[in-house]
Amino acid sequence: MATRVIQFREALREAMTEEMRRDPRIFLMGEEVAQYNGAYKVSQGMLEEFGPQRIIDAPISENGFAGLGIGAAMYGLRPIIEFMSWSFSLVAADQILNNAAKMLYMSGGQWGCPIVFRGNNGAGGQLGSTHSWCVEALYSNVPGLKIAIPSCPYDAKGLLKTAIRDPDPVFFLESERMLGDKGEVPEEEYTIPFGQAILRREGSDVTLVSFGRPVNFCMEAADELLQDGIACDVLDMRTVRPLDIDAIIASVKKTNRLVVVDQSWPFASVATEVITQTIERAFDHLDHEPVRVNTDDVPTPYAKNLEMEYLPNKGKIIAAVKSVVGTTV
């Protein structure tokens, strides 16, 4: 497969562009997606190719364009709704959680809602607490929706294409901090299935589970830990709903130790869920209590040093891994 190195934002753009070429039902709507080429330049050039009928600048009204997209999806179109930040999705909660996620169920299977909501998730770098929301813990509690959270350009493209083709509502969580990340992406078409984690590093000492941006910190930590003779299985979940718990269990049965790295608050987080399910299914295989690396349990700090300290990072992950292997290695 011929590959080239492109940015995360280009991978997202390619996914949308390719899908829009093959399916005229798809349109992109959001704040500044058209004339301005996207607040983060993800949709650069798309207005030029697809015109204002399919690349649509919306009024600053997240609940409005979320709801409009839901209506269009129920009718049979395939909307992609861009939230400049998932922080702004909170004002659209009734539409995205109470309508999109439940419409199929509440109509006895008659009214599906094939829609993608996508945008930046998590701390973007000194944006303050109201603009730094990590929504995966909050939203993954709701049945009826799917949540994809890529960690690299390859996954961004493959997962977004799957999201666009998916018949259910998909929440696609990107990161402002990763949009400029570069990575190898094939020239050829590919998609990545939902609900299948990928093993990024193989090792027999500890299972490191993560998703989204912190996967990259796990990789850095794993590299460094290897120098200390500690080999990690690094599992990138790719989607948290559905969650590939089988991959986690298989790894834990091999390593007998689990560390989960999650960029949201610890209480009732995805990390909590991963650990709960692991205990339910593989309790006897654990040689050490599972450990979470979440953020601190406070609103995201604004000050640079505090924000850095608040987020998961390589150092915290290394310390966590050492704590679970420490007694026996």
Binding site: I70, G71, A72, Q95
Partner: peptide, 20 residues
């Protein structure tokens, strides 16, 4: 469309359908 029980959510769906 199905009957909307949450108050006022359906006019937005109407806008979406009208857009379509």
């Amino acid at each position: 469309l199905p009957i909307a029980i949450p108050i006022g959510t359906q006019p937005l769906h109407a806008a979406g359908i009208a857009w379509a």
